[in-house]
C-alpha cells in the first residue's frame, strides 16, 4: 500500500484553530496546531520570569537586536524551536507571587485583535488556564506585558511530587490574531533541588 504525502497531513495542521477550540483542551496537544509560518504578525523580543517579592529574575531570554526586517524573517525553523524546557530551582514552588514579562514587536500593519491563551497541566490534568486579550496593537510597536499572579500555597507533599515528576508539568501557549491561531508554543518544567 502506498501512502501519499498529503494523506499524512493531519487536518489540524491546516484548518484554522479558534480560541474556543483550545479552551476545550483538557490535556496537552500531541502536535503543534499551526505551522511556524502562520506568524506574520509578531516577534518575541524578551521573556522574563521574576520573583515579585524580591524582584529577582529567575529566567531571562533576550533577542540580540531590535532590528526586524518584516519582509525577510526566517520562519523555517524546526518544531524544537517552539518548545522550551525549563529547569527551575525548587524554591520557585514556594514563591508567593511570580511575574512573567513578555516583550514583543508588532508588524508594520498592526493587529486589530491579539489574544493569548495558555493552558498549564500537571500529570495530564489541567491546572490553570490564562486568557488575555491585548486587542489592538499599534503598527510597528514594541509592547510589554507583565502578568503577576499569586501562586497557590503548595503543601510539602505536593512540592515533593512536582520535584519528583520532571517534565510532567507542561504548557501550551496559543496566540491568536482576529481569532485565528498564528503561533503555538510548548513548554515543560522541571524543578531541581
Amino acid at each position: 500500500m502506498t501512502v501519499t504525502p498529503s494523506a499524512k497531513t493531519s487536518p489540524a495542521a491546516t484548518a484554522s484553530v479558534s480560541p474556543d477550540d483550545v479552551l476545550k483542551h483538557d490535556r496537552p496537544t500531541e502536535k503543534f496546531l499551526c505551522p511556524i509560518n502562520a506568524n506574520a504578525f509578531i516577534e518575541f523580543l524578551e521573556f522574563r520570569i521574576r520573583d515579585v517579592d524580591t524582584n529577582q529574575v529567575m529566567f531571562e531570554v533576550k533577542r540580540p537586536s531590535y532590528e526586524i526586517d518584516w519582509n525577510a524573517r526566517d520562519l523555517s525553523g524546526s518544531d524544537e524551536l517552539r518548545t522550551i524546557n525549563y529547569t527551575f530551582p525548587a524554591a520557585f514552588l514556594k514563591y508567593k507571587a511570580v511575574g512573567t514579562t513578555l516583550v514583543f514587536a508588532v508588524c508594520p500593519a498592526g493587529i486589530s485583535n491579539f489574544r493569548m491563551i495558555e493552558r498549564h497541566y500537571f500529570k495530564g490534568k489541567l491546572m490553570k488556564s490564562f486568557d488575555f486579550t491585548f486587542g489592538f496593537c499599534i503598527p510597528g510597536s514594541v509592547n510589554t506585558w507583565e502578568s503577576v499572579y499569586t501562586m497557590p500555597p503548595l503543601d510539602p507533599k505536593q512540592i515533593e511530587e512536582m520535584i519528583e515528576s520532571p517534565d510532567q508539568t507542561l504548557s501550551d501557549s496559543f496566540y491568536f490574531v482576529d481569532d485565528t491561531l498564528i503561533m503555538h508554543n510548548k513548554a515543560s518544567y522541571r524543578y531541581a533541588t
Binding site: V106, F132, F134, C137, I138, G140, S141, V142, N143, T144, W145, E146, S147, V148, Y149, T150
Partner: peptide, 12 residues
C-alpha cells in the same frame, strides 16, 4: 514607550 505596557495583577 513605543506601544503599550501592561500589568495584569491576579490576586485571589
Amino acid at each position: 514607550t513605543l506601544g503599550f505596557n501592561i500589568k495584569t495583577l491576579d490576586y485571589n
